[in-house]
């Protein structure tokens, strides 16, 4: 992951957009997501930078950033695993999937593996109810999971990061 909050191109893009639209504040999630995509999470400097681009106070950005469960205001692993614990996944073995992940990765919910690769978090419904149980890793949704299939997916995600 790049160690910049926003690239020069992104900075230009957001500054131009903010100047040409009537309500620059509507871009706050776009900017925060761009920072998170580059940096992995949104540090205080990211909140300040967002405010500076959109002419908002850091507090105005912070109250939005902390509202959303998919904006990370703390360091997370390179891939966040969101485990669906809503009713359809629950009815088809989500608890087993969640327990398996905790055991395999050696972390509790909210934790990050010691190699900094995976962070484990619960999430509400992913909209994959017909393929329950499901998890989302990064922005990819995986359904019809069994512990075995999950192990293969974790392997693949790890390998993809090493490339």
């Amino acid at each position: 992951m790049a160690e910049v909050l926003l690239t020069e191109d992104q900075l230009d893009h957001f500054r131009v957009r903010a100047a040409e639209i009537a309500h620059p504040r509507e871009l706050v999630i776009d900017v925060l997501r761009a920072i998170q995509s580059n940096f992995g999470w949104v540090p205080d400097e990211g909140v300040e930078l967002t405010g500076e681009i959109l002419r908002l106070s850091p507090l105005q950005v912070e109250e939005v950033a902390t509202f959303y469960d998919k904006i990370f205001r703390q360091p997370v692993g390179k891939r966040v695993i969101h485990v669906c614990d809503s009713v359809c996944c629950w009815s088809r073995g989500a608890e087993e999937i969640y327990a398996h992940l905790q055991k395999t990765l050696g972390i509790s919910p909210g934790g990050t593996t010691s190699d900094g690769v995976f962070t484990l978090l619960p999430t509400c419904c992913l909209g994959a109810c017909g393929e329950a149980p499901a998890v989302m890793i990064g922005l990819t949704t995986y359904g019809d999971l069994t512990p075995e299939r999950l192990d293969e997916i974790l392997e693949r995600e790890r390998a993809a990061l090493e490339e």
Binding site: S86, V87, C88, C124, C125, G127, A128, C129, G130
Partner: peptide
């Protein structure tokens, strides 16, 4: 936004 658990038709 489709976040009602059990709902995935729009997706």
């Amino acid at each position: 936004d489709e976040k009602e658990p059990g709902t995935y038709k729009d997706r």
